[in-house]
């Protein structure tokens, strides 16, 4: 068992996500940075879909009431066991009574804490991920609170030896200014040529309105091609007849402050969507903090698929090193 001494700012149980229920209006949830999530699970010998803890901006303080094997990966939140610094991206042995805590975040936005055996919470619609809006999944459908006690699942295999690490060149890298690759499309026909150019050329600043639902950006207004609004859409030029929103899609309500929809997002609505963040770059997006900047870079579908292959090759390399 793991006792929550301090919950952090928003710490939730997440796995690979609740996939297959999009048509019911259920977003997938799941780890925002799947790369770090997966690396943490690999470092403790878990199944790739085992549930972990995802902490945002402020790490939790956890008391282990049993011996355990853990790994911490993702943003640079310097971890400590009983006050002593321990390394990130590394297999760690924990003794009963040890307390895991974190120093202030240095880089990145989210850190993943994997425990051999996984965090044991009930599976809801195929997943252990927390979706707080409806109180589904995770630990009682909500972020952790002080005093919660988490169960650890059965181990499915041996863990790598203590000290096994993901080499530095394979770890997530962070920056205060970021390039995020997008495929233009969806209703981008609504943008004027100038707005499209502007969207792809300016630095967008992440506002404090940035969480698992989505990130809102500040920049410059984007104009739409004038039209008589079609029946059923609504009167604002940014309104469309309500439609589905992909994960990673970028919408522009009223032409100001674009919003990138992420893993706990609404699945549809009536705002024009203009582009979609490619799946590999959602990991990076999930590690960007308020007030950092993003530049959206257009890529083709083939380039997006190539990026998936590169990411999978990187994960395969990690698997080779660990096993």
């Amino acid at each position: 068992m793991i006792k929550v001494l301090k919950p952090g700012l928003q710490t939730t149980v997440q796995d690979n996500g609740r996939n297959g229920y999009y048509a019911l209006g259920m977003p997938p949830s799941g780890a925002m940075d799947k790369f770090s999530f997966l690396a943490a699970n690999l470092l403790v010998g878990n199944d790739e879909n085992a549930a972990v803890l995802e902490a945002t901006y402020l790490g939790p303080e956890l008391e282990f009431q049993t011996d355990a094997v853990i790994a911490i990966a993702g943003g640079e939140f310097p971890p400590k066991v009983n006050g002593q610094c321990v390394p990130l991206w590394t297999t760690l042995a924990i003794r009963e009574g040890d307390v895991l805590s974190f120093d202030f975040v240095k880089q990145g936005a989210r850190v993943y804490i994997a425990v051999a055996g996984g965090i044991e919470v009930p599976v809801k619609m195929g997943s252990r991920s927390t979706y707080t809006l409806c109180g589904i999944g995770g630990f009682e459908g909500r972020a952790l609170q002080k005093g919660d006690v988490l169960a650890i699942g059965e181990r499915t295999g041996p863990s790598p030896v203590e000290g096994t690490a993901v080499p530095v060149y394979l770890r997530m890298k962070f920056s205060k200014s970021n390039e995020i690759r997008v495929v233009m499309g969806l209703c981008s026909y609504r943008l004027t040529e100038e707005a499209r150019r502007k969207f792809l050329s300016i630095d967008w600043t992440v506002t404090p309105d940035a969480n698992r639902v989505g990130y809102r950006f500040k920049g410059e207004p984007l104009d739409f091609v004038p039209r008589k609004q079609p029946f059923g859409a609504g009167s604002d030029p940014s309104n469309v007849t309500d439609l589905g929103y992909p994960i990673g899609s970028i919408q522009v309500p009223s032409g100001i402050e674009p919003i990138a929809l992420l893993h706990d997002a609404v699945t549809g609505g009536g705002y024009v969507t203009i582009a979609t963040i490619i799946s590999t770059d959602l990991n990076k997006m999930g590690q960007i903090k308020s007030n950092e900047t993003v530049r959206f870079v257009e890529v083709t579908l083939d380039e997006a698929i190539e990026a998936r292959k590169e990411l999978n090759a990187k994960l395969d390399e990690i698997k080779q090193i660990i096993s």
Partner: peptide, 8 residues
């Protein structure tokens, strides 16, 4: 296209 995982 909606990125590499979605078609709209």
């Amino acid at each position: 296209l909606g990125g590499d995982e979605f078609i709209f």
